[in-house]
Design a binder for these strands. Structure first.
Lengths: 199, 199
DNA sequence: CCCTTAATTGTGGATATCCACAACCCGCCG
DNA sequence: CGGCGGGTTGTGGATATCCACAATTAAGGG
């Protein structure tokens, strides 16, 4: 699990105190003084979580959040704010923010939520990674192999597939063997488990 | 889709005005003057959504919410409050509340959220129904059949299963055929698709 | 004690799958 | 032109699956 926390707050005192708190508990904290700075450093591969102040000079935390959503951010976002209101919190959470905390807040409380966020990120990344690995294997399939895979996943026998595609059963067998090989499965059931949920 | 809205608020004026609003848009509104009253009427089969005031005489809306969670409530809960604060909203949403709205609120806004909640409920119920149907079929399986199903889902051949269970392959075939019949599937792939995600 | 249900096994034949070995056609690219 | 990759097909044999027909054993309930 990554122990990286990104902190965006335009108040240096907060950056220092929170940074100290996080690091004293064994987390790595990287601080940014503005939304723009973080945006410049952001990449889809960042792991960890994001502590985000709302009221800031320039781009606000909420605007940064929206922008990150567009960019496909997967980092759990924990809003930190001194002047939040209910609709703001509700909207942020419904858009997928991980948490919304008012400053000042209890150190233990905050640490707990940050750790939760890091957990969530770790499990998100794990499932994203396996899904990526599946995608890369899918890309190695030829058109015909993908087509036949669909029919296998529809629970059809080789014979039926051959009929539907107007090719010999032997050909279906070959494609089937090849695609199993490429997908790294040994049986149709494994393939089905690998693929159910996507598509 | 159900058009039933349950409204719990101890203020008669609110019950009347909201009830009127909802009914004027074609929804059915059933109002309760206290958490206790609703609790008495509640059953797991209720469909629709729940509009819940927080500050009330006796049990508060939040307490009712917690109690309903324990009871396995699946109705989307839309909190309505005149005196909510941010931590309260955050905690409610993180516990699974559907929304958290401050009174007074815009009629159109509220209607939109209520309709959303009804949609969510409808789709929840649809998937719960199919999952229920699967469960009831699972219950009809004998212990042995369930056991063999596990091994099939692990992608094992009848032969291997027979070895592992120290029984004849013929027996495995029989159980397999029976459980396919009971589960309403024709192939192992279909079974796998039915079962992946649960367990 | 009888009946039911679950679990078990056998026989035998029709089908289906798996696989090694070989081969042909075609379009694309250097 | 020659090579390469993708799609195609065939043969034949070893395995596996599917299924109808038949039957035994053990446990639990009425």
């Amino acid at each position: 699990m990554s122990n990286q926390v990104y902190l965006v707050d335009d108040d240096e005192a907060i950056r220092d105190s929170l940074g100290w708190l996080l690091q004293s508990r064994g987390l790595t904290c990287t601080a940014f003084a503005s939304a723009e700075e973080f945006l410049a450093a952001w990449s889809p591969q960042l792991a960890g979580c994001l502590l985000l102040d709302i009221r800031m000079q320039g781009m606000s935390g909420l605007q940064l959040f929206d922008r990150l959503l567009e960019l496909g951010n997967r980092l759990p976002v924990l809003f930190l704010t001194g002047h939040g209101d209910v609709p703001m919190a509700v909207s942020a959470l419904k858009k997928g923010a991980f948490d919304f905390v008012e400053k000042p807040c209890d150190d233990k409380e905050l640490m707990g939520r940050v750790l939760e966020a890091l957990q969530v990120d770790a499990s998100n990344r794990a499932s994203a990674a396996s899904s990526e690995s599946i995608n890369s294997r899918l890309e190695k399939l030829t058109t015909r192999e993908r087509q036949i895979m669909e029919l296998i996943l529809a629970g059809k026998f080789n014979k039926v597939i051959a009929d539907e595609l107007q090719i010999s059963m032997r050909t279906v067998e070959v494609h089937r063997a090849n695609l199993f090989e490429k997908m790294g499965v040994r049986t149709a059931v494994e393939l089905s488990q690998l693929m159910t949920g996507r598509r």
